[in-house]
């Protein structure tokens, strides 16, 4: 098609100059990478990190665009109507794609999305400002036990990864905290730094971005994050909590098995690049390699857990 043969923007032009074209498996021209949120969030940042590696490895430009609305639902509801020729991909997020369709009819279903790779996750973490009296997780738990509901914790949205983590942890620790939902992680961090709330349910990425301004009390990983060797995991402290918000990429469901396989391999290749891994880790992300083959099992396990948590929390019926 004509539009694919014309290089889009000086951007493509600038990056491609000097690089050998060809060598790409089956993609033909720039790829449209839709992020179903606004810019600046974790989904956007990780897509931006993939962008140069994709251009370098496969000789084609990855054009990131934003299609926000309905907490991602607008984008996902439109995904399967897009062309499945492999030139359009869209970011997907857990638990969003599990919880949203379970709440109401939002125009897509979890199984209806052709998710072909989950490439990273941002582990849940409890974050406090540097000047907070909470030095350890125990301090926070003790305060919450002494003053039920008075420990306010900000987080991004309701029925989100942060909210589910808060409900789960409260239950495990036998405490009652107050969850204050904000519009996105950025707003929730602002509230934390401004001492509007006492702590935040955030991600390891918050710790990476804010550096000395904040302190993480615990991270929900199997092992400590390489960037934060001093921050204990919840498991070490006796709470069986691992997980966070998972991010992957999907194709329209009209894409052929070959196209899906090709994409799964390509994203896998980027994920295997040591330089990419380092950039992701520096940003506080945790890498994950669930390819098209392992997706069904992974999604089934995660869905079951999220739905169970959400049901217990009364977020879905």
């Amino acid at each position: 098609m004509l539009r694919r043969t014309i290089l889009k923007t000086g951007a493509a032009f600038a990056v491609m100059a000097g690089l050998a074209t060809g060598a790409s498996a089956d993609i033909d021209g720039p790829v449209n990478y839709i992020i179903p949120f606004g810019p600046g969030g974790e989904s956007d940042i990780s897509a931006r990190l993939q962008q140069p590696f994709f251009a370098e490895k496969f000789g084609q430009e990855m054009v990131v665009s934003y299609q926000p609305g309905g907490g991602g639902a607008v984008g996902w509801a439109s995904l399967n109507g897009l062309n499945g020729d492999g030139q359009t991909i869209m970011g997907v997020n857990l638990p969003h794609i599990v919880i949203k369709p379970a709440q109401k009819d939002v125009g897509f279903t979890t199984d209806g999305l052709n998710t072909f790779y989950m490439f990273h996750y941002t582990p849940d973490a409890i974050v406090v400002p540097a000047g907070s009296p909470y030095q350890t997780l125990d301090d926070l738990v003790a305060d919450a036990k002494a003053n039920p509901a008075q420990v306010t914790m900000s987080g991004s949205g309701k029925a989100s990864a942060n909210h589910l983590a808060q409900i789960k942890f409260d239950k495990m620790a036998g405490i009652q905290t107050t969850y204050v939902p904000f519009k996105g992680t950025g707003a929730s961090v602002t509230a934390l730094l401004g001492n509007q709330v006492k702590a935040q349910w955030g991600y390891t990425t918050v710790g990476a971005k804010q550096g000395d301004a904040v302190r993480m009390l615990a991270v929900a990983m199997e092992e400590r994050h390489p960037l934060f060797p001093d921050v204990p995991t919840f498991k070490e402290l006796g709470y069986d909590m691992t997980g966070g918000a998972y991010r992957g990429i999907a194709l329209p469901n009209t894409a052929s098995a070959e196209t899906t396989k090709m994409w799964s391999d390509m994203i896998g290749e980027i994920n295997a690049d040591p330089a990419f891994r380092q950039k992701m880790l520096d940003g506080g992300f945790a890498l994950l390699d669930v390819d098209a083959g392992g997706m069904a099992d992974f999604m089934a396990a995660r869905s079951a857990e999220y739905l169970n948590d959400a049901r217990e929390a009364g977020l879905i019926k």
Partner: peptide
């Protein structure tokens, strides 16, 4: 801006 960001990679 979203379209132009890749320029920053080479500049």
């Amino acid at each position: 801006l979203a379209v132009l960001v890749p320029i920053t990679f080479s500049m």
